[in-house]
């Protein structure tokens, strides 16, 4: 077996690894890079537990070959918090008890972040459809949707504050 050398970026860090042609990005993250936040719930793209961002696009890392990561940018749940400060979604998931067993949580956080990054005022229905690729078997989704709605409010406030700062800087 001859390995494939790959250079990529994970959560802003340059990373190199050698993988087998069949290995998925999920296998690589977990088994080569020690990033266990993305989970394998199905291996077939049906549960979303392995969700990561690939060049700014939400994907299931179980449906990406490790070799495809060459030259790409990958973001995982491990890169979501800003130092000690949790992302609003992480904070709201805790406050709203939006997790029970927590195995699906990293995938939900990534998918919800992908939603809020381009739509910070989603309706309940938009939240539900944006998260339809992430299965949760514990919560009935109720508290997850509420947490995402609350985090959307936080993101809007952050955006407004940023706009105000920008305007003040220009004046």
């Amino acid at each position: 077996m001859k390995g494939i050398p790959v250079s990529t970026t994970v959560n802003g860090d340059d990373v190199e690894f050698v993988c087998d042609g069949r290995e998925t990005l999920l296998d690589v993250l977990r088994n080569h890079l020690g990033l266990i936040g993305a989970k394998e719930g199905c291996g077939t793209g049906d549960c979303g537990a392995c969700s990561v961002m690939l060049d700014g696009q939400l994907v299931c890392s179980c449906l990406v070959l490790g070799a495809e990561a060459e030259g790409r940018e990958i973001e995982t749940v491990e890169g979501m918090a800003d130092g000690e400060k949790l992302h609003p979604l992480q904070q709201r998931f805790l406050e709203h008890a939006a997790l029970q067993c927590g195995i699906c949580t990293p995938g939900f956080l990534i998918a919800a972040k992908a939603l809020l990054d381009h739509n910070s005022s989603p309706s309940e229905s938009e939240i539900r459809y944006a998260l339809a690729g992430n299965l949760c078997r514990c919560t009935g989704y109720d508290k997850i949707v509420r947490a995402v709605r609350a985090a959307a409010g936080d993101v809007r406030r952050q955006q407004k504050a940023r706009a105000r700062r920008k305007a003040a800087a220009q004046n």
């Binding site: 990033l35 266990i36 936040g37 989970k39 979501m80 918090a81 949790l86 805790l94 195995i103």
Partner: peptide, 11 residues
Amino acid sequence: KVTGRARYGAD
């Protein structure tokens, strides 16, 4: 559990 550190069966 929200930062990906929690260790499950396969972790």
